Amino acid sequence: MTATDPCPELLRYLRGAREAVLWKLDGLSEYDVRRPVTPTGTNLLGLVKHLVAVESDYLGTVFGRPFGEPVPWADPGAEPNTDMWATPDESREYIVGLYRRVWAHGDATVAELGADAVGRVPWWPQDRAEVTVRLVLVHLIAETDRHAGHADILRELIDGAAGLAAGGDNLPAVDRAWWEGYRDRLERAAREAGAADGPPLG
C-alpha cells in the first residue's frame, strides 16, 4: 500500500470479514444454515444472501458498474426482508457462489476506479449521496463485520462453535468445563448486580 492508496489495506479488512461470514456456515446442515435463530428471523445463509445485495449495490450500481447477474432480492420493489432468508430452491452453493462472484466484481471495481473515484448512492439522503470508493469500502467493512458478529452468535447458539476465523479462533485455550464455570461465574455476578434493582416485575 502506498501513502496515497488506502484500497489494498481496506480490501484486506473487507476480505477478512467476508471469509469470516462464510466460515460460520462450514459443517452445518441445510436446516441449520437456514433456520431462524432470533425472534426477527436472523439466520446464517440469510446474512450471506443479504451481503450479496449489499456488495452488488455499493460496488456495482453506485459506481455505474452493475453486477452482471440477477439479484432480484436487491430490487427496490422486492418483498420486505426477502434478502434475509433463502428459499428452499435457493441452494447454499448458489448463494455462496454468487457472493464470491460479487466479491470479484467489487474488487475489480476498486482496482479499476481507485480510491477517489466518485459514485452516487441514490437511497442515501441527497446531502451525502455522493461518495468515493474509499468511503464505500469503509461502509462495507462496517456492514460486513456487523453481520460477521451476528453470524458468530448465531453459530454459537446453533452448535456451540465459536471463534474469529478458521485456524485462529482468538479464544482462550481452555476446555469445556472451564467455559461452563466461567459462564456460571458471570451468571452469579449478573444476579448479584441485578439484586440492587429489586425483584423482577410481573
Rank of each mutant, 00 (worst) to 15 (best):
D83M: 05
G68V: 12
L25W: 07
W123F: 14
W73S: 11
W178F: 14
A78Y: 05
T38W: 05
G41R: 11
G77M: 03
R35L: 00
L45G: 08
W23M: 00
V118N: 11
L28F: 07
L186W: 08
L51F: 09
P39L: 07
V37T: 08
R185K: 11
D32S: 04
L171I: 00
A162H: 03
D89I: 00
A190S: 07
L164S: 04
L10Y: 12
E69D: 12
L164M: 03
P6W: 02
G46A: 13
Y58C: 02
L28M: 14
Y58E: 04
E9Y: 09
A17K: 01
D116M: 13
R191A: 02
G77A: 13
D32P: 01
A195C: 06
H147A: 00
E55V: 09
L154F: 08
P200W: 05
G119V: 10
P72A: 14
D107K: 12
Y31T: 15
V110T: 05
R101Y: 09
L22N: 09
P72T: 10
G167R: 05
E69T: 09
R12D: 13
E19F: 03
D169E: 07
A162M: 10
E93Q: 15
C7K: 04
D57F: 12
W23E: 03
E93R: 13
D5P: 02
T40D: 15
D75Y: 05
L171A: 01
A53I: 03
A53N: 02
G167S: 05
L22T: 13
A111V: 05
G16C: 07
F63G: 06
W178E: 08
P125L: 10
F67K: 11
A190N: 07
E187M: 07
L10P: 10
T61D: 14
E187I: 12
I95S: 04
R101H: 10
G160E: 08
V71K: 07
P199E: 14
G68D: 15
N43K: 05
T82E: 01
A161Y: 02
A104G: 12
E55W: 11
I141T: 14
D5M: 05
E93I: 01
R35I: 04
D26V: 08
D145A: 15
A177G: 06
E69W: 08
T40L: 15
D57K: 06
A162Y: 05
A173K: 03
L45T: 03
D107M: 09
L47T: 10
G163Q: 04
Q126R: 14
G163N: 01
G106C: 07
R65K: 15
L44V: 04
E69F: 10
